[in-house]
Nucleic acid binder design. Structure first.
Lengths: 114, 114
DNA sequence: TCAATATATAATTATACACTAATATTTTTA
DNA sequence: TAAAAATATTAGTGTATAATTATATATTGA
């Protein structure tokens, strides 16, 4: 297991961001695969602006990256972030979120690119 | 390493509590040893009510326990809490906080009981 | 080029949060 | 038993946060 030591302030900042069910689940989903905004809207059954605002917070902190693919913007986890190993450790204590994406796929709502 | 899997909501709740520099440091300190309120007041240079309110949040969540020893009330980490293994993993990514207590001790402000 | 789709941003509002000031409670000690 | 010390609680205040609504931007496809 990789280990990074991060200043308390920075850890607190990351934990504050992840101390929200929506954002924490987002990160759990992104650990499994890239997702676009409309997939999050489906998974969370929340409004698109609300989803975008959550993603913006994660992006502003550098925890996720965005990449446009045609009409969609895909988000991915930033494995280069100094807190990424910490986040991985966190996620080990949570149920796997991938079933949410599988449910999407079953409904034909998963966006596949490339 | 012990492993516990906790529901997303519960993890988010714990992370929200620890997403505050003061409370996160408190937990880091308590992982090393019990502390009483006046020690926290010294370490954080914050008002006593503010410290008490932070401790109350941690206590309400069951993350810490309190125990009166004479005129002092000592707080300790609750190793029985379902999120304790998660917290231990978190703390591994932070600098050790014990030097703060050593500094207190050097000033003769550490409260030793028993 | 126009309509539809996907996404972002801005403004607003209601709620949550952290701190301070004031006060209450408990314990020790003189 | 009265005063001091340690801690908790309550009320008030300013700020942060999350959601909604409205609007703007960018891309695709007819």
């Amino acid at each position: 297991m990789e280990k990074t030591v991060i200043e308390v302030e920075q850890v607190a900042h990351v934990l504050k961001l992840l101390g929200d069910k929506t954002r924490l689940t987002m990160v759990g989903l992104l650990e499994g695969s890239e997702c676009c905004v409309c997939e999050f809207v489906e998974v969370f059954q929340m409004s698109q602006p609300s989803i975008s605002q959550h993603l913006r917070k994660l992006r502003d902190a550098g925890l996720v990256r965005e990449k446009r693919k045609g009409q969609w913007i895909f988000y991915s986890i930033n494995k280069q972030h100094i807190a990424y190993p910490l986040i991985q450790d966190l996620l080990k204590h949570m149920p796997d979120q991938k079933e949410k994406l599988e449910a999407l796929e079953a409904e034909g709502l998963r966006i596949i690119c490339d």
